[in-house]
Simulated scan of single mutants.
Amino acid sequence: MSPRGVAVPNARERLFAAAERVVAAGGPGALTSRAITDEAGCAKGLLHAHFAGGLDEFVAELVLDRFARTAALASALPDRAGEETITANLTGVASALLTATGPELSGLALTRPGAAERFRDAMASGAPGFAAVQESVTRYLDAERSLGRVPAGLDTATAALALVGTVHHLLMTTWPGAPDPAEQIDRLVLLLTRG
């Protein structure tokens, strides 16, 4: 364990990764400040030193961080037009979005009033999330359409909305032990890209 007063490198990411392990092992109910810092192997006050708003701020920031990572991944998608298969490219981004925080943490962020408020405020202020991913998917499909790899008549914006909206639905309605939604995503991508 890191002694008190000693700088912890990458403390924010270390705490985020620890929280994901805590939730994976014990479910959302196991997520406490103490469980996170114990799992991270650091002093108990580290979480509160980095997140003055406590566990609510921490949970909101964790979810926002993971969505931002997925949005960054999706932003590279238009540059991949013409590479690999369309199904592989879209399924990769959809899977990343689905696993960005997992249903347990996403649900936790929405059920903790303080976390939900912080999350909504950040989204309203332009934090990257589902809308950024949707925009990137639209631009990607536009690029693939110009290469003739998707039907000329494909409504790319609606296809992107359908994909991202479905992933959002799956994220919010999946629970531990539920069937893996990957097959549903694969079928949806095929349906959407064949016009």
Rank of each mutant, 00 (worst) to 15 (best):
A115R: 15
G165I: 05
G41P: 03
E20T: 08
E20Q: 13
A94N: 02
L98A: 04
L170Q: 00
Q184A: 13
G27V: 12
A109I: 06
S146L: 14
A74F: 00
L31I: 08
D79Q: 14
R187T: 00
A60G: 11
E39C: 08
G195F: 02
A115V: 12
E13I: 01
S95G: 10
A76G: 11
T70K: 06
P78G: 05
L15T: 06
T70Q: 07
A116T: 08
T166P: 00
L15G: 11
A88Y: 07
G45M: 01
R66Q: 03
V63H: 08
L31E: 11
D121P: 02
L191G: 02
V133L: 01
R12W: 03
G82D: 12
P28N: 09
A18T: 08
A88V: 13
W175H: 14
A81K: 14
L97Q: 03
H48P: 02
A74T: 09
A43E: 05
S33V: 10
V59P: 09
E57F: 13
L163C: 00
R12C: 04
V133T: 03
L190M: 12
G29S: 15
R194N: 14
R120D: 04
D155N: 04
C42E: 01
G148M: 15
D180E: 10
G148W: 12
T158A: 06
Y140F: 13
V6E: 08
P9Q: 03
G126L: 05
P151V: 14
V137D: 08
A76M: 11
A25Y: 12
R187K: 06
G54C: 11
R120E: 09
A122H: 07
A19G: 03
L192I: 02
G102E: 12
R120M: 13
R120A: 15
W175D: 07
G53I: 11
S95I: 04
L191H: 11
S2E: 14
K44R: 04
G126F: 07
A131T: 07
A159V: 00
V167F: 02
R66W: 05
M172W: 01
W175E: 13
T193M: 12
A72E: 07
V133N: 05
R149A: 15
A109K: 15
A81N: 11
L188M: 01
A152Y: 07
S95V: 03
S33T: 09
A162E: 10
A88E: 14
A182V: 02
Q134A: 07
G45T: 03
A182P: 01
R118Y: 15
V137R: 13
A25E: 10
A76S: 07
R69H: 04
R21W: 03
L190R: 12
F58Y: 10
R149G: 13
A19Q: 09
L191A: 11
T193V: 07
A72T: 08
D56E: 14
P181R: 11
A76L: 10
A74H: 00
T87H: 14
E83S: 14
P128H: 12
G195C: 05
